[in-house]
Design a protein around this nucleic acid. Structure first.
Lengths: 151, 151
DNA sequence: AACATACATTTGTATATACAAATATTGTAT
DNA sequence: ATACAATATTTGTATATACAAATGTATGTT
């Protein structure tokens, strides 16, 4: 098992508080890199993939920008431009809401649903691989500790 | 304790594999936001602070860009421009290495050491607060599980 | 109706991240 | 000595992130 001290190439031991923060940060980068490598072959960024899945979850009903931001794990400060890119790729459509013209209505297109259908099983498999070194019980404990940390 | 399903405002339960990946990602964002809020008041970014601490760790001996990148938790693809910003702020100096002119020699300045001395105790306290909901034993377990996950 | 206020999104600017290509320097083989 | 590969950094381009300001729309008060 590669300890954090090895990864950061430091000889002095890191205090437990800092070590925990660094370990979480490093693990997050580690998982992100693995997932990104998969998504890259589909020319879709992590955030774009996230938005597409949120839109699919709406099952045909429109989403506005706030809906999307609320459901995004990394609160983007600029969902407008992210949606712009998805429109260019043909995965998403945007209309202004007729009832409240300040709002926009964003829908996933058929093409968007199709690319998700392609990517989904690969991401599922990747997420299984990422967590394969821990038992189900260990995963439960890890989730519990992370949730408690933030509470 | 706020579960991930609440955070992401989803009603459907998330499978354990994906939940773990998301929990790590979200926890990383959570800690980053807290630390960033502190650093922001010093007009230093997380990455800049990281580099300054790496340079201080060299204790007067020069660091080149690869040294810095190797010790950075988030492998920046562009340490050149990050160092540029630190030079502008007067926290760092850069010279070309006379022995191997492809390399650069980067040093932290007195001003850089002084700002670190100011920031350090505040970050220490912040890291203690971040981890204050878990006992030492729980923190050990968390670190163990994250390390095992990546092994 | 006129005004201020709140809301939802867009735009602007700076920095960060990711990757590819360009530049400069050094080491090695012939 | 020349050519070629390896090394170390820099530059370019695209996207992502963070925050502030601007725009356009709706709502409440007088």
């Amino acid at each position: 098992m590669k300890q954090l001290e090895d990864i950061l190439k430091t000889t002095t031991p890191i205090p437990l508080n800092r070590k925990t923060v660094l370990n979480i940060t490093y693990s997050s980068i580690w998982t992100k890199d693995i997932v990104n490598a998969i998504l890259k072959s589909f020319d879709v960024s992590n955030e774009q993939f996230n938005v597409l899945r949120i839109l699919r979850g709406k099952k045909g009903s429109p989403a506005n920008l706030q809906d999307i931001q609320d459901r995004m794990i990394n609160k983007m400060s600029n969902t407008t431009r992210l949606v712009d890119k998805l429109i260019l790729k043909g995965y998403v459509e945007r209309f202004t809401c007729e009832i409240n013209r300040r709002k926009v209505e964003i829908f996933i297109t058929k093409k968007g649903l199709e690319i998700l259908k392609e990517i989904d099983p690969i991401i599922d498999r990747t997420e299984s691989e990422i967590t394969s070194n821990l038992t189900a019980k260990e995963l439960e404990t890890l989730n519990f500790l992370l949730t408690k940390l933030r509470s």
